[in-house]
Computed example of a mutant assay.
Amino acid sequence: MAAPSSGGRGLTGEELLALPAVIDLDTANKALMIGRSTGYGLARQGDYPVRVLRLGNAYRVPTAELLKLLGLETEGGGDVTGDRAESGALAA
Rank of each mutant, 00 (worst) to 15 (best):
K30C: 13
D24V: 03
S5E: 13
L11F: 08
G76D: 15
D83Q: 11
G71A: 04
G76H: 06
Y59W: 13
E65D: 14
R9W: 12
L32F: 06
Y40R: 15
L70Q: 10
G35D: 14
L17A: 07
A58F: 05
L69F: 09
G8Q: 09
V52R: 09
A92F: 05
A18N: 14
L90M: 10
T27C: 15
V22W: 07
E86S: 13
A92T: 05
A2I: 13
E86V: 06
V52H: 11
A89S: 07
T38G: 00
E73M: 03
A2H: 05
L19C: 03
K30D: 10
E14Y: 02
L42T: 00
E14F: 00
E65G: 15
K30V: 14
A28N: 03
L72A: 01
V22F: 11
D24Y: 05
S6Q: 10
D79V: 02
L32Q: 02
E86H: 09
A89D: 05
D47E: 11
L69P: 06
G76V: 10
G88P: 11
T12Q: 11
L25E: 00
G10D: 08
G35S: 15
G77Y: 02
L53K: 08
T74I: 00
V50S: 12
G13S: 05
S87V: 12
N29V: 01
A89C: 03
A64F: 12
G7P: 02
E86F: 04
Y48K: 04
R51W: 03
L32H: 02
A21W: 01
L16P: 00
G8C: 02
R60C: 11
L67T: 14
V61P: 01
M33W: 02
G46C: 09
R36D: 14
L11P: 01
S6H: 12
A21C: 08
A43N: 11
Y40M: 07
E15W: 00
T38W: 04
V61Q: 01
A21T: 10
